[in-house]
């Protein structure tokens, strides 16, 4: 299994250190999944579903209490290669304010390569390239606190790209952003996936973000609930609703009509839904 996947998790169990007098509770209860090189995977679930814990397994920020996680065949528990793993799998966190280190954008982006001991001329090249990749090159001399949330999050992504990773894991990167910031960040990560072939693992609870992914993994209560391409996952409206997860309104509408006996396909977007309805409605006039 570990040979096929770029990242593979095998029966991962995890419990946080319990406080005194409390019994440890498993946050992950035997989760196995595989992320292939170049994929765009959305990891969906509620708070407490284990999705963020899983994300931190991918770059050895957390180590499984049971089971194994491999990154390109490297076991994450191996202390000697921890930086090798973190360079390959970058992690972007939720709060854009709390992950920027320096008071100047370009110096912040340089932080990762500086830690890796990259020579100065090479750092300069990587910083410029990373900032161009997220569309923030013109802001390289700005102070981060003067930027919008979406811009700050793109700087955080650039900081990871400058380490030239194979994969970026984003832990609810849009949860604190306004709609414009969300769009900026999503467009950026889709572009990185398509143009640079960077593997993306997007952790989110927004359904509309998951719809755009190549593959969706739904987690609940420390288990994997479903996995498949967006259409396979979202066609199971009842199951998602049972777990109080959202479904795009377009999907729900066609699902309801199907329940009433109309032969509607499963639709994911407004456009698809309009086309599906247009095919069944009586001709105009």
């Amino acid at each position: 299994m570990s040979e096929n996947g770029f990242i593979s998790a095998k029966d991962v169990v995890f419990a946080y250190e319990p406080e005194e007098g409390q019994t440890p509770r498993n946050v992950l209860e035997g989760v196995s999944m595989e992320i292939r090189r170049g994929e765009f995977v959305a990891l969906l679930g509620h708070n407490g579903s284990g999705k963020s814990t899983m994300a931190k397994m991918f770059n050895a920020m957390l180590l499984p209490t049971g089971g194994k996680v491999f990154v390109e065949g490297m076991d994450t528990v191996d202390d000697a290669i921890v930086f090798e793993i973190r360079r390959r799998v970058g992690l972007v966190l939720q709060n854009p304010d709390n992950q920027l280190v320096a008071s100047v954008v370009e110096e912040d982006v340089a932080f990762g390569p500086e830690n890796l001991g990259v020579p100065p001329e090479e750092i300069r090249r990587r910083v410029d390239e990373a900032l161009r990749a997220v569309g923030m090159y013109d802001f390289r001399l700005n102070a981060p606190y003067k930027l919008s949330g979406g811009q700050k999050q793109r700087i955080a992504i650039a900081g990871i790209i400058a380490m030239e990773p194979d994969c970026i894991v984003l832990d609810e990167p849009t949860a604190m952003l306004d709609p414009q910031g969300r769009t900026e960040v999503l467009e950026t990560i889709h572009r990185l996936n398509e143009e640079k072939g960077i593997t993306i693992v997007l952790i989110t609870h927004y359904m509309d973000e998951a719809v755009q992914a190549g593959r969706v993994i739904v987690m609940d209560g420390g288990h994997i609930l479903m996995t498949g391409d967006p259409r396979e996952v979202f066609s199971q409206v009842e199951l998602l609703k049972q777990h109080q997860l959202d479904v795009p309104q377009a999907t729900e509408l066609t699902h309801r009509l199907r329940g009433m006996g109309f032969p509607m396909p499963c639709t994911l977007t407004a456009e698809e839904c309009v086309e599906a309805l247009a095919a069944y409605l009586p001709p105009v006039g």
């Binding site: 509408l253 407004a270 309009v274 409605l281």
Partner: peptide
């Protein structure tokens, strides 16, 4: 989204 879907249908004459 639901409002948009119906608005598109209305535009197309339904």
């Amino acid at each position: 989204q639901i409002t948009k879907i119906l608005a598109s249908l209305r535009e197309r004459g339904w």
